[in-house]
Design a protein around this nucleic acid. Structure first.
Lengths: 260, 260
DNA sequence: GGTGATTTGTGCGTATGTATT
DNA sequence: TAATACATACGCACAAATCAC
């Protein structure tokens, strides 16, 4: 293929990227397989190494390729795990507490035959307005932050941060620096706060450096962010932000009448 | 700030990126404001232009900065529009057709005081297995593909592709090469197919080049992808994939009992 | 409307560092 | 140890877009 640049043409590195993309899509290499080394691509296409790197940069930032120093450049290969964020209750069922995400998460992992582990932290922090607005408390007010860092088969998987008003968490197990058996909602329920609804806000963005490092996510891998505000009949009782590495996770919502 | 590289230190361009990130977070520049030009950063930090560009590349790929040829490098600034993907029905309400996404989309835009326009295409194509699996039809079977390209205030906003089995769409308005007044579900309802539930699968990924061009999305801007499979009591009747530019959109699901 | 200055974009060459095999 | 392959860093030149004049 000739990628010499004529007038009105795209830049060389973009045309090179496009040709590599075509070859990838055409199945020239298998998932996880190594591409030709940079010097090989230089001579194949007759360009400078810089240009090869610019082209590969493009595909890395699209999430198609990963580079490993000293080894080579590989086609990305990731299994995707579905996580059921919501299952509408069976028809005719009374208003029931919503399925706790942590439980369904564990079930999901088990069903997929994967091993889920978690690290837990409990902090008391001054909340950002993102959180206080949704909890309808004063800006800068302290909240209980319960953080769960999840690993799947040893691979970093998700970051879940649940925020509770201190007034609500006081004198419940939420003040303990340990996970609550059965999930945080058990502790809330014992205190008379039963969640009957929630609002999920879904967004996607690129990770910041700390997040990228924790997730071991290279360039081209966005985060899928779920911000769930839980309500009782009286008002909001918690805000849970869960961040997923989008190349290994999908969120599933089953809505309306149940099928199957 | 001295960014000369010592042993065991991060590379210069990464340390430069980190320092610029710090200055950005510290509020040294306003949203939309221009950063110092590359030559200025060269001399500020005493590095080669190449190194400046590598550092800025990092922040561009994080979605923090945008570069404009001939002008400069700017702090990104984007208003976010919430799109209500689902509102759980009021308590006690009978099973009702789900809120059509296209309608709520238009309502959302209007509420935000923005002008929504759309281009429409109707095609008959052989579906990928992604689609046929969910529609429970044979792989490679033809489907009706109805595509809506949406613009908000002239800015590219979302791509919505609805797939219907040809057998189902036959002898309905879905075969017409025009949008159906009131939404596709009106045409389906008229044929006796009333959607009573759906499954949404949410994912995030980087756009491919065509998508990036259409969305006018630079590097660092992922797509938020919603794949909705709609069901009647008998089985799936449609699969709608909607792709949103994640820097301008969020999806909102209101679940369980309604608040307010 | 055109010209030149400014600023980012593209492309080349070279050298050296670091991780893997 | 040596060879290989990607990572970092410098330098240079010109192209293309924008803007002030």
């Amino acid at each position: 293929m000739n990628i010499s640049r004529g007038p009105g043409q795209a830049p060389k590195y973009q045309r090179l990227a496009a040709d590599l993309r075509r070859r990838i899509m055409a199945g020239e290499w298998q998932a996880g397989e190594a591409l030709p080394v940079e010097s090989e691509l230089e001579s194949q296409y007759g360009v400078a190494r810089n240009t090869v790197r610019l082209a590969v940069d493009v595909l890395v930032n699209e999430g198609l390729l990963v580079r490993v120093q000293g080894k080579g450049t590989y086609l990305k290969d990731h299994p995707v795990l579905d996580h059921h964020a919501y299952l509408s209750p069976a028809a005719g069922a009374a208003a029931t507490p919503l399925t706790p995400p942590s439980l369904s998460y564990a079930r999901e992992a088990e069903r997929a035959g994967r091993k889920l582990t978690a690290d837990f932290q409990m902090l008391i922090v001054r909340a950002t307005t993102d959180i206080t607005d949704r909890l309808r408390i004063a800006a800068g007010e302290a909240v209980v932050l319960r953080r769960v860092l999840r690993h799947m088969d040893g691979e970093p998987w998700s970051i879940e941060e649940s925020h509770y008003p201190v007034a609500l968490a006081a004198s419940t197990a939420l003040m303990d620096p340990d996970p609550v058996a059965g999930g945080d909602e058990v502790a809330l329920g014992a205190a008379g706060h039963v969640e009957i609804g929630c609002v999920d806000e879904l967004a996607a963005r690129m990770p910041n450096p700390e997040e990228a490092q924790w997730f071991q996510a290279g360039p081209g891998v966005p985060l899928l962010v779920q911000l769930r505000t839980g309500f009782t009949g009286k008002g909001p009782i918690r805000v849970t932000e869960t961040r997923y590495c989008a190349d290994r996770n999908r969120l599933v919502y089953s809505l309306g009448e149940r099928k199957e």
